[in-house]
Design a binder for these strands. Structure first.
Lengths: 121, 121
DNA sequence: CAGTATCCGCGCGGATACTG
DNA sequence: CAGTATCCGCGCGGATACTG
């Protein structure tokens, strides 16, 4: 038996209304840097400098702002240790891990099919 | 047995390298309007005007440009009928449907948890 | 109806310098 | 080390008018 996409979509709720919370959160996590930062944190805790290096091309400003947004959304945890020099670690929250369980299959599929989607010129 | 997110992430490939095809496609489908247009097409074929109305807040320019990008990516099919007045229909391709099978669980989860993620102020 | 053409503002996001 | 502050360009994306 085949379940149609339309049936599944029913349960997605009203994403098309402007300003609805779902749209706001989608904008955060589906943003260019949002995805990459979340992805980087998927294999565990990372320090600021590690994220800066791992997420290639991100600027300090964007890393800071992305992390603050994801933290406010409750998806990322920030832990700062009172040491000199300072050490700050970022990790997914439980909510963040739930999210990534759904996001990873999507990213995997894209990674596997990117060559098919955009023909190699 | 619990499979760690890190293990799953392995198979996602190198998403962190700048300019890699995966990043490009992710940027298309994870963009604000990309997601919403793909979502609108998930319950079947739609005409231009229907999409304009269903995806609330999208401008003509952005709808046109989003549709052209997704069409070039091979995710959306454009069929124009030689009638007066003209009729043009948009639908997901097989590739697009494969993608949405992975995207819908993510969107559903966000829709279900948006209230939790951003506390109602 | 299904777009294109043109104009234009603003804010995203980069670069650089600086700090607790 | 982990950021913040400041400046600034450009292109995303909206608004409006027009067309096959």
């Amino acid at each position: 038996m085949v379940v149609s996409l339309a049936q599944i979509r029913q349960t997605a709720g009203e994403v098309f209304t402007e300003g609805c919370p779902t749209r706001v959160v989608l904008d955060h996590i589906m943003s260019k840097w949002g995805v990459l930062v979340l992805l980087a944190l998927t294999d565990g805790t990372h320090r600021w400098g590690e994220l800066r290096r791992e997420v290639e091309g991100i600027s300090e400003k964007m890393l800071a702002s992305t992390l603050r947004t994801l933290e406010a959304d409750g998806l990322v945890d920030r832990t700062s240790y009172p040491e000199v020099p300072p050490r700050v670690e970022y990790a997914l929250t439980d909510l963040g891990r739930e999210l990534m369980e759904r996001m990873l299959p999507l990213v995997q599929w894209v990674a596997a099919n990117a060559g098919r989607v955009i023909p190699v010129s």
